Amino acid sequence: LKGYACRHCFTTTSKDWHHGGRENILLCTDCRIHFKKYGELP
């Protein structure tokens, strides 16, 4: 998807986009997986 950027690491290239984190922000796949695993963003 074009025009998306992770609100945590600011990458614009991700296989998928997810809403997550404490504020339900837009996250890339890597940040979301880390959040689900550790309960915090990298």
Rank of each mutant, 00 (worst) to 15 (best):
L1R: 10
L1C: 15
L1E: 14
L1T: 15
L1K: 13
L1W: 07
L1V: 15
K2M: 10
K2H: 03
K2F: 10
K2T: 03
K2R: 08
K2D: 13
K2E: 12
G3L: 06
G3M: 09
G3E: 06
G3T: 10
G3S: 09
G3Y: 06
Y4F: 12
Y4E: 09
A5Q: 14
A5T: 14
A5L: 13
A5N: 09
A5G: 14
C6T: 00
C6A: 00
R7V: 10
R7M: 13
R7F: 07
R7E: 15
R7D: 08
H8S: 09
H8E: 03
H8Y: 05
H8R: 06
H8G: 06
H8C: 05
H8I: 04
H8K: 03
C9F: 01
C9G: 02
C9I: 03
F10C: 12
F10E: 14
F10G: 13
T11M: 02
T11F: 01
T11V: 07
T11K: 07
T12D: 08
T12A: 06
T12W: 01
T13C: 08
T13D: 13
S14I: 02
S14C: 04
S14Y: 02
S14G: 04
S14Q: 02
K15I: 06
K15P: 10
K15C: 04
K15A: 09
K15G: 07
D16Q: 02
D16N: 04
D16R: 02
D16V: 02
D16Y: 01
W17H: 08
W17K: 05
W17V: 08
W17I: 14
H18Q: 15
H18E: 13
H18N: 09
H18G: 15
H18A: 15
H18K: 15
H18M: 15
H18L: 12
H18V: 12
H19T: 15
H19N: 14
H19R: 12
H19L: 12
H19V: 14
G20Y: 02
G20C: 10
G20A: 08
G20L: 04
G20H: 06
G21P: 05
G21L: 05
G21W: 01
G21K: 03
R22P: 13
R22D: 13
R22K: 15
R22W: 09
R22L: 10
E23P: 06
E23D: 14
E23G: 09
E23S: 07
E23W: 04
N24A: 08
N24D: 12
N24R: 08
N24E: 10
I25F: 06
I25K: 07
L26Y: 02
L27V: 04
L27E: 04
L27T: 04
L27Q: 01
L27W: 05
L27H: 10
C28T: 00
C28I: 00
C28H: 00
C28E: 01
C28W: 00
C28L: 00
T29H: 02
T29C: 10
T29K: 08
T29Y: 14
T29P: 03
T29M: 07
T29D: 08
D30G: 12
D30P: 11
D30E: 11
C31R: 00
C31P: 00
C31W: 00
C31L: 00
C31D: 01
C31K: 01
R32G: 13
R32Q: 12
R32E: 12
R32P: 01
R32W: 15
R32C: 09
I33Q: 15
I33W: 11
I33T: 14
I33C: 15
I33L: 15
H34F: 06
H34V: 04
F35E: 14
F35K: 10
F35A: 10
F35L: 11
K36T: 14
K37Y: 08
K37R: 13
K37G: 07
K37L: 07
K37V: 08
K37P: 04
Y38I: 04
Y38P: 06
G39T: 04
G39E: 11
G39L: 05
G39Q: 10
G39Y: 05
E40Q: 13
E40M: 07
E40Y: 08
E40F: 02
E40D: 10
E40G: 09
E40V: 12
L41C: 06
L41V: 05
L41I: 02
P42W: 02
P42V: 02
P42G: 01
P42R: 01
